[in-house]
Design a protein around this nucleic acid. Structure first.
Lengths: 117, 117
DNA sequence: TGCCTCCATCGTCCATCGACGATAAACGAT
DNA sequence: ATCGTTTATCGTCGATGGACGATGGAGGCA
């Protein structure tokens, strides 16, 4: 498959980047228990739509799903979410080797009066 | 505008959820200096495309842009990114009041033999 | 066996995204 | 005043996303 790091990161961020999927993740975080039907009843969305959102989250590795008899149970993959949070945090802390938090290059900002866009 | 919290969070996540925009953010994190032209030369994308990506990041509040004479300079909004990272982290730590990291509800998982989907 | 519930998948429709080239606007330099 | 450079915006096009209803399969129960 050859998926670049940033492609995977982008995939996971995109999976989170929808209000309905955020609601699903929050529900799973609060309950740690799953039950697809409960999620559907909590969301005012069609069952098929919720199922698709769950699929997106599952394919991104953010949740796991198990079949339990007649119903499906979903759980957060807290470890993947923790890694994701760390990656987002690493975006602005940056420069993992060498100095961290480099001082702003003042010389880049003094040449002419600058106005906010 | 009445933007719900999750809508704003989703907007910011969606802004990050693209390899090109991740590359832009990384470049800004590494250099702390901006120059639209440099970003364009680093990306193998058309200048208009990069400009659109910068616009998305700016509208999400993840970067700031200033006009400096004939050119534009972009910088990371590290504070917003930090808040974002915290929000992602809060998704799996959840339950901000009451106990944190609740024990898994074992009873939800023992009713029948479960198989991974 | 037959029904009912639960859920995943399919097909469709409309909206948005991502890419590009072309154009316009702002500015410095000649 | 004009030209070249730099960047933002517009218009377009194909691809993808998100919503839905309909369908189908798996499993529990009468």
């Amino acid at each position: 498959m050859m998926m670049a790091d940033d492609d995977l990161l982008a995939l996971r961020l995109r999976a989170l980047a929808h209000p309905a999927r955020l609601a699903i993740v929050r529900a799973l975080a609060a309950a740690d228990r799953c039950q697809c039907g409960e999620i559907v009843r909590g969301l005012t969305l069609a069952q098929s739509t919720v199922s698709q959102h769950l699929k997106v989250l599952k394919e991104a590795g953010l949740i796991t799903g198990t079949i339990e008899g007649p119903r499906s149970c979903y759980c957060l993959d807290r470890e993947t979410l923790a890694v994701l949070a760390g990656q987002v945090g690493g975006l602005f802390a940056a420069l993992e080797d060498g100095q961290r938090n480099p001082a702003p290059r003042a010389d880049a900002l003094v040449s002419s009066p600058s106005t906010p866009i």
